[in-house]
């Protein structure tokens, strides 16, 4: 029983990080139809910004915020200056995001150097919690709570605010939304900024747990992609459900079929692609 609890708990907490990363990716794809390969690198750069902030101020929560904001600004600039010109050119947009991956990876080497670094979470989060026979890392619980709150906030934003409904309209059909008086360029910037914010923030959140090192971007990115492909692009509900699935399947897969660690994750994705290309909660294409 504890065994299962531990495994599910681990899966859910990993799903939490995947959700934060995937949600941004999903929003960006849903609204702008951009496959943003830079997203994993945003995650990594965000972690570095968070690290620098933590070193300067000693405040972990400020680090999370600054990591997110820095990447949001960067994302908005990239969107305004580059991606906007390429609207409608799907391939050009993907290729240019790859260009930014390489440039940013190099920038990391220049600015922060090749050293692997770790980041300490506040003391009260670094402990081990215990309920009966079930012990769990506090930090993982924190991640789950954080992701849940974020999801709730996003849900509120999407369904209860005016901007949120514009975003939703844009996910459904950009042209129609534009016709209905939604200011599409602003929505694009907003969505890209929000997506980037989530990526940068999740990088800082993951840092105390995963460490910060070159290469982390492409180690984590596939999980986010699987989540949005399975969940359906642009769908909050899809991202939540699929991220949890990714976390749990990855956990159980590694536990029971360690030799097929990635396969247990990619195979369900392929099956869903074959049966329902738009994902579990995506709109049919």
């Amino acid at each position: 029983m504890t065994f299962w609890l531990t495994q599910i708990f681990n899966g859910v907490s990993y799903g939490a990080i995947v959700f934060l990363l995937a949600m941004g990716l999903s929003l960006i794809f849903g609204v702008m139809k951009v496959i943003n390969v830079t997203h994993g690198t945003y995650f990594l750069v965000g972690a570095y910004f968070g690290l620098t902030t933590l070193k300067q101020t000693g405040n972990f929560f400020l680090a999370i915020l600054i990591g997110g904001i820095a990447i949001a600004v960067m994302g908005i600039v990239i969107e305004r200056v580059f991606l906007r010109r390429l609207q409608g050119n799907d391939l050009g947009q993907v290729l240019i995001t790859m260009g930014f991956v390489l440039v940013l990876q190099d920038a990391i080497l220049v600015i922060w150097g090749p050293d692997p670094v770790s980041m300490d979470a506040p003391k009260f989060l670094a402990s081990t919690g215990r309920i009966g026979g079930f012990s769990f890392p506090m930090y993982r619980l924190f991640l789950i709570v954080f992701a849940a709150v974020t999801a709730a906030a996003l849900w509120f934003f999407e369904s209860r605010t005016k901007i949120g409904s514009s975003v939703r309209a844009a996910v459904d059909d950009v042209e129609m939304a534009g016709g209905m008086g939604v200011n599409v360029p602003v929505v694009f910037s907003l969505v890209f900024g929000l997506g980037s914010f989530l990526a940068g923030m999740s990088g800082v959140l993951a840092a105390p747990w995963l460490g910060i090192q070159a290469g982390l971007d492409f180690e984590i990115l596939p999980f986010a992609f699987v989540a949005i492909i399975v969940g359906g692009m642009g769908s909050l509900k899809g991202a939540v459900v699929a991220s949890l699935l990714v976390g749990i399947i990855d956990n159980l897969g590694k536990t029971f079929f360690p030799e097929f660690a990635y396969f247990t994750l990619f195979l369900p994705m392929a099956v869903i692609l074959a049966i329902r290309p738009s994902g579990l909660f995506g709109r049919a294409m």
């Binding site: 139809k33 496959i35 692009m233 990635y262 195979l267 290309p277 294409m285």
Partner: peptide, 25 residues
């Protein structure tokens, strides 16, 4: 079954699957 940007996405996902096989099989 897909076209445009979805086609990009699906070919990308399929390539990931093949990579997963190469990496883990």
């Amino acid at each position: 079954r897909a076209s445009d940007v979805y086609f990009l996405m699906i070919t990308f996902a399929l390539a990931m699957l093949i990579w997963g096989l190469a990496y883990r099989w």
